[in-house]
Amino acid sequence: MLIINDLSLRMAGRLLLDHASLTLPAGTKAGLVGRNGTGKTTLFKAITGDFPSETGLG
């Protein structure tokens, strides 16, 4: 299970996520799409602990 609670991410002064929350049950398959530079890779780095978040994370 993946739980993200009240996550805020900022990179180079740019707000990427502002108090986002998400719950994905075990076994769920999900995709993440978006334009270049919108924070997709940064989100995955925050989930794995390779990028510090301002607030939250499950």
Rank of each mutant, 00 (worst) to 15 (best):
L24P: 00
L16S: 05
E54G: 02
A46V: 01
A46H: 02
M11I: 12
L7I: 06
N36S: 15
A20W: 09
M1N: 12
G34W: 09
T55Q: 03
L22E: 08
D50M: 03
F51W: 13
I47N: 10
A12S: 09
A26K: 11
T41E: 15
D6K: 09
G31V: 15
S53W: 00
F44H: 07
I3A: 13
T55D: 02
R10E: 14
A12C: 01
T38W: 07
T23G: 07
T23H: 14
L43V: 13
D6V: 04
G34P: 12
A30G: 10
M11F: 14
G37T: 11
R14H: 12
K45D: 08
G31N: 04
P52Q: 11
T23I: 13
M11Q: 15
L7N: 02
D50A: 10
G13E: 03
P52K: 12
T23N: 09
K45E: 08
P52M: 04
S8L: 01
S21E: 02
T55F: 00
T38F: 09
G49T: 05
P52E: 13
L32T: 11
G31E: 04
F51P: 01
I47F: 08
S21T: 05
T23M: 11
M1L: 09
R35H: 15
K45Y: 07
S53Q: 08
I4M: 10
T28H: 11
G27P: 08
G34N: 06
L7G: 01
V33D: 03
L57A: 11
D6L: 01
P25L: 10
R10H: 03
G58Q: 02
L43P: 06
P25R: 15
L16M: 10
M1Y: 08
K40R: 15
G31W: 08
L17Q: 01
L16C: 04
T23E: 14
T42M: 07
R10P: 01
R14C: 05
G56L: 04
T23Y: 11
H19V: 00
L16P: 09
L32G: 07
L2S: 11
K40W: 14
G49P: 01
L43G: 09
S8C: 07
G56F: 04
